[in-house]
Amino acid sequence: MVSAIKNTPDGYKPPSCVKARTLLSDECVKDVEKELRLKTHDTHKESQSYQIGDFYGVKKRVAISKFLLGATNSIGPSNALHVVTDNTTNCKTVGWEIEKVGTGLGWRYAFFGEAILMLPFAILGFVMKPLQMKGMSNAKIIPWFLNEEFSKKDYSYVSYTLNQLSRFGQDMKALLSEKVYVVNVLGYIVYNFVFGVYSYWGLKVGYNIYQVDNIDLLFGGIVIVGGTVGTIGGSLILDRINSTIPNAFKLLSIAVFFGAIFCFSAFCFSNIYVFLVLILIGEILVDASQGPVNLVCLNSVKPSLRPLAMAISTVSIHIFGDVPSSPLVGILQDKVDNWRTSILILTSILFLAAGIWFIGIFLHSVYRYEEDSEQPDMSHLLESEVANGDITSALL
């Protein structure tokens, strides 16, 4: 910009502020109108985002508001993701005009409802007593402040943090040495890689392939029904066939393999009704994995590592699964420019998840549900100089 200013002809006078915000902004309005017309003409009710610049004058702002409402109605209000305006006071009128039409709560109903439903669980988390879970030790834990090292004046928070990190590193080493657990989580990551894309790009894929107006309601119903039936059904089947780790891996590999076949086949058909039937069956089958995969996570490790095992599983399936999958599939779609091809390539990855879980059947596993938790190792907290009588009195 500085270079451009230096190269301006002698005697050049830049436009005034009023001209820049009136006459020149009219050109911006025309450009926006042209782009919006092209977008709404070429797109069949797909979700859109509009970005509007800063315009001067009440009449212009009202006109822009009306034009935005018309463009939004042309694709359906539920498909307009958001309208972005410059953060200036002049653009407030645009928002006010649009708000006069959109007086309903819309998506706020969903968020308010979810918050109300979750409120009792949040309260129970504070007031209910800790559960005495199977395999967990009932022994009292020696408080950290009994350690003489903590009573030393030169002990710092940094030293305590390093001590905790060292313990975390030891627990992670022990956790990753459990081959059954690692294979289970790897399969879960690949599984979540696929369904992260389904949840992110699903509606766009549905609109693009099947051209159905209420595809969001159809997909939502399939997720609710398939997820509920599949999760409960998979857990009941595992209990019926004896809930061991090898049986859990068998159920995981078989259910996901056949679920992948139905999901893959669903996207091969152009008929919306055939698609809905096949994708529902596939959703039920793949969601049958939820019970078995968590059973393996909990019972393939020592009781003291169960909380860490579940935490690492949850973090891993998101960091390595659904977080990178959506942008990667977006890049793939930019290359192939065909949503059916992109989604078929993605769905085929479910066969890889089934294969990974199939390997788990042949791994040596120990079912540790009945295993009692070992006495906590508190040697890292107590100095050897602490007398035995002092420890006894501390536990009382």
Rank of each mutant, 00 (worst) to 15 (best):
Tyr207Pro: 00
Leu119Lys: 01
Ile361Val: 08
Leu165Phe: 10
Leu396Thr: 15
Ser253Gln: 02
Ile222His: 01
Val183Glu: 00
Ser65Asn: 00
Val83Trp: 02
Ala122Gly: 10
Leu117Lys: 08
Ala122Asp: 02
Val183Gln: 01
Ser379Thr: 15
Glu97Thr: 01
Tyr56Thr: 02
Leu252Ile: 03
Val62Gly: 00
Ser348Asp: 07
Gly221Thr: 04
Val229Lys: 09
Leu352Tyr: 01
Asn90Ile: 01
Ser384Ile: 09
Phe195Glu: 11
Asn271Phe: 11
Phe269Met: 12
Phe150Ser: 14
Gly282Arg: 03
Asn138Ser: 14
Pro303Cys: 09
Ile356Trp: 03
Val101Gly: 11
Val386Met: 11
Gln170Thr: 05
Cys91Ser: 15
Ala260His: 04
Leu382Tyr: 05
Thr244Ile: 06
Phe249Gln: 05
Leu119Val: 02
Tyr367Asn: 15
Tyr12His: 07
Thr392Arg: 12
Glu149Lys: 13
Ile209Gly: 02
Phe257Cys: 08
Asp322Lys: 04
Ser348Tyr: 10
Asp54Trp: 12
Asp26Glu: 07
Arg37Trp: 04
Ser235Leu: 02
Gly104Met: 11
Ser393Phe: 10
Ala110Gly: 12
Lys6Thr: 06
Tyr188Asn: 12
Leu332Arg: 01
Gln51Trp: 07
Asp334Pro: 01
Ile331Asn: 06
Met133Asn: 14
Asp54His: 10
Phe320Asn: 03
Ile317Glu: 03
Ser25Ile: 04
Asp154Tyr: 04
Lys134Ala: 06
Val84Gln: 14
Ser137Val: 08
Ser235Val: 05
Glu33Thr: 09
Thr347Phe: 13
Asn299Arg: 14
Leu381Asn: 08
Gly57Glu: 05
Gln132Ser: 10
Val180Tyr: 00
Ile345Thr: 12
Pro15Tyr: 01
Thr40Arg: 11
Ala354Gly: 08
Trp107Glu: 14
